[in-house]
């Protein structure tokens, strides 16, 4: 008998007492407030900052590109990789930063790039989480992983309250990465240390919808 048939036969034998199929009580909160409300945006920023991510608010009169350039410069980045679909209004345009469109860069090229600038698919206020789904403004997963500095632009209307709302907005068939702060470990005496293998620096720029 193949391992597959044998394991399935074992499972059926183990369930010979026909345990009841349970209805799942979903009485937990599904929604909090409407996406993008001021309270949610505030909470998202606060909670993300608690993970030592740096959160920047772009006022409507500021261009996000200007903030992106400032944030990159502040960490000493001289090159940044972006997906081809990253909107022009988010792309830093200063001469001091070389912007590289990802056309299948190899691992070494990414390793020699200082930063990555991406958008996101959705963001969760209650947990301070960004979710990337390899969309056109984000690109493949390696882009936001290998460079040591990740800059993520979030539109306020992408900020939802709960984990349940975020999952409802996502397509499970896309590759998904949930990011809550820079990489961290607590493996030595439960002391939290930020910056392990993922990007050691995370800057998040929250922009109004029209930007």
């Amino acid at each position: 008998m193949s391992a597959r048939s044998e394991i399935l036969a074992r499972v059926r034998a183990a369930l010979a007492d026909n345990p009841a199929v349970h209805r799942v009580p979903r009485e937990y909160r599904q929604h909090s407030r409407d996406a993008g409300t001021a309270e949610l945006v505030e909470m998202f920023g606060e909670r993300l900052a608690e993970y030592t991510a740096r959160v920047h608010r772009a006022a409507p009169e500021h261009s996000p590109a200007g903030i992106t350039a400032e944030v990159l410069r502040a960490r000493g980045a001289r090159s940044a990789v972006v997906a081809r679909g990253l909107p022009a209004r988010w792309r830093p345009t200063t001469a001091s930063i070389t912007l590289v469109d990802d056309a299948g860069l190899d691992i070494d090229e990414l390793d020699h790039t200082d930063a990555a600038v991406t958008g996101c698919a959705v963001a969760i206020a209650e947990t301070g989480t960004l979710v990337l789904d390899a969309g056109a403004d984000q690109g493949r997963r390696a882009i936001s992983l290998i460079p040591d500095h990740h800059v993520c632009v979030v539109r306020t209307d992408q900020i939802v309250g709960t984990v349940a709302e975020a999952l409802a907005a996502l397509d499970p068939l896309r590759p998904l990465t949930f990011v809550s702060g820079p990489s961290a470990t607590s493996d030595i005496e439960l002391d939290r240390v930020e910056g392990v293998h993922g990007p050691r620096h995370l800057d998040v720029i929250v922009t109004p919808v029209e930007c």
């Binding site: 209650e126 947990t127 997963r141 499970p172 590759p175 998904l176 990465t177 949930f178 990489s183």
Partner: peptide
């Protein structure tokens, strides 16, 4: 509240 990274594929 949330761990730093969750990957799904």
């Amino acid at each position: 509240r949330m761990n730093p990274y969750t990957s799904m594929w």
